[in-house]
């Protein structure tokens, strides 16, 4: 049992590429979560303000976050597909 566990750990240690991919996916998930939170915050701020400049700014920010999230989801899906193939 001990030898089996040790071998498993060794395999994980040497399999840095896999480790990196997992880290990448985790980081991407975190960013997407943060973006979602940010989106909610800005949507709320947009509803609260009647300042034209701020409205445009928030609208721009929301649009940018939307695209950034879309790109993030696409990259995430791609990474997951590659992981499955491996």
């Amino acid at each position: 049992m001990k030898i089996e566990k040790l071998l498993h750990k060794l395999q994980a240690f040497f399999d840095t590429d896999k480790h990196k991919k997992r880290q990448h996916i985790e980081a991407l998930k975190k960013i997407l979560l943060k973006l979602k939170k940010k989106e909610r915050k800005i949507t709320h701020a947009l509803q609260q303000t009647d300042d034209d400049c701020l409205i445009k700014h928030y609208q721009t920010e929301l649009e940018i976050i939307r695209i950034q999230r879309r790109k993030g989801i696409e990259v995430l899906q791609l990474l997951k597909e590659r992981k499955k193939l491996n």
Partner: peptide, 9 residues
């Protein structure tokens, strides 16, 4: 990512 908003604004 916030830099994009500032550039667009």
């Amino acid at each position: 990512l916030s830099l994009d908003t500032l550039k667009a604004t």
